[in-house]
Each structure stands twice: as structure tokens, then as C-alpha cells.
Computed example of a mutant assay.
Amino acid sequence: MFIDTHLHLVERNRISYPWLKDAPELNRDWTYQEYETTAKRVGIEGTLHMEVDCAPNDIETENAFVAELMARPGSLIRGAISSARPEEKGFTAFLDHLDPKVIKGIRRVLHVVPDDVSQSDHFRENVQQIGKKGLPFDICVSQRQLDLAIDLADACPNTIFVLDHCGVPDIAGGGYDDWAKSIRTLAKRPHVNAKISGISAYTTPDWTLDTLRPYVEHIIETFGWDRVVWGSDSPVCTLNSSLDQWMAATQALIASASETERTAFSRHNAKRIWSL
């Protein structure tokens, strides 16, 4: 049984997602009911909702939406990783206002803003505040920005980090060597974890297990079984697969792991990192 640490739900009649206009394959509602049907079939026992880079003035609405879903009897949702703007004034007040029963972590997508955003003293001081609140910070960067992730981790040694999507490797473009070198460097930071989540989206439609295997194995080798978690990245994973295909691929890729290793990866690490 798995905890899915990276579920996106889209509710367009209530929340605005400006980026969706440029992603026609994803530009529709993605409901909890649709996800739950597949999740219960493939062995997902719980999930964290990952913010969907909604319009800034809809962040509180998105968190309230997740809270409502959590309150449903039998809900799989265990909490929310909230969107945030650590680069802006008033962030401390925003952080203090969050409901700890709902909000389990914070994310600011960094590949959609200038590189210098995460390098400012103000941003880093606020990421340090996130750590003082006991909340992990998800790092969402493109492969070329992995050095920014390393710098941010070094600037905030007391904040727990989780690298999304294996660092978004350019699998389709064949950029393995540069990615692997950066990952090895980042993994030396013991307060950084890695999320193996929906990386089929970064390859070509004709991918196979052997396409993904070097990336998954390198993440596990460098971070170790105690610092890796699983995520679906649904619905983004549907760009080149489906939720059940991504789960099947994951199961095949970790088939040789011990029971202790599988349990750590599939759920125990997530419970520890996000205090579930």
C-alpha cells in the first residue's frame, strides 16, 4: 500500500489556474472521485494534495477545498501541501494563518519565476521560517536549476526539503549525465529527500521500464531508501501514461527491494516527513 505524496486536483469553476491555458492536454477538471476510483484499485491508501500553482488570490480557496475533501467520510486525502509566495511581504502572517490540521507542507514552483527569486535573502529567510514551523518545503525546479536547489538547501539547513519529480530530468533529451552529477551533489545534504513522482511525463510516449530505470535507480542509490517517497503527479503523469500504468511501472522498478525498503519508500518515509 502506498501514500501518494503528489496529487493535483483541478476545480476550474472555483479556482483559477492561469497556466492551464497553455496545457490543453490537462485543461479540464480533475476530480477527487475520478482519482479515488483508480487509487483504490492500485493500492493507494492515502494521499497528499499538491498545490496546482493556482492564481495567488486563490491559494486560501484551494486549501479550503482540500480541507472539505479531507472531511469526507473515508477520504484518502491526508493533508495539503500549500502554495505560497516566500518572496513576498506578509509571508510570515500567511504562514501563521495556516491550519496545521490541513497544511502539511509548502511549495513554491521555481521553474516559472526568474532564477534569482530563490536566491534572495528574503526568500531564504522565509523558507527558514517554514522549517521552524515544522513544515517541509517541496523543491520544484527544472533540471537546469538543480544548482539553485543545492544553494537553497545549503542556505536553510534546518528546513526539510523534498525534491519533486526526481529533479525533472530531461529524459526525452538524453541529459542523464549532467542530471546525475547534480543529483549526487544534492543528495549529500541529509535534510533533502527525493520524490519519485510521475517521471514518465518527461520522456517520450514510447517509453519502457528500461527508459526510466537509470533515473529511479540513481535517485535511490544516492538518497537511500530512507529519503525517498513516491508520488503519482496525477494528472500530469497522464501526458505519457496513466495513473495505473505509473503505479505498475513503479512496482516493477522496485521489485528487487526488500520488504523493509519497499515499506519505507511506499509509506513510512512520507508519514515521517509530513507528520501524517
Score class of each variant (00 low, 15 high):
237 C>V: 14
176 Y>Q: 06
18 P>C: 01
135 L>H: 14
189 R>K: 14
171 I>Q: 05
151 D>M: 09
135 L>W: 15
200 S>D: 14
41 R>D: 13
121 D>E: 15
269 N>D: 09
68 E>Y: 07
33 Q>F: 13
78 R>W: 10
187 A>K: 01
226 D>S: 12
267 R>H: 12
60 E>C: 06
170 D>L: 08
63 N>C: 01
234 S>V: 11
263 T>Q: 15
224 G>T: 05
58 D>K: 08
245 Q>E: 15
275 S>Q: 15
10 V>Y: 09
161 F>N: 00
129 Q>P: 03
110 L>N: 01
274 W>P: 00
121 D>W: 14
12 R>C: 02
181 K>M: 10
231 G>W: 00
171 I>C: 02
270 A>Q: 04
81 I>G: 02
95 L>A: 11
198 G>N: 00
261 E>A: 13
119 Q>S: 14
8 H>Y: 10
234 S>G: 07
196 I>K: 00
235 P>W: 03
235 P>F: 07
90 G>Y: 15
90 G>N: 12
19 W>P: 00
275 S>M: 10
129 Q>Y: 12
110 L>H: 01
133 K>I: 03
79 G>D: 10
135 L>N: 12
215 Y>W: 08
153 A>M: 10
218 H>M: 15
235 P>E: 04
260 T>G: 07
185 T>A: 15
237 C>I: 13
180 A>E: 15
4 D>P: 09
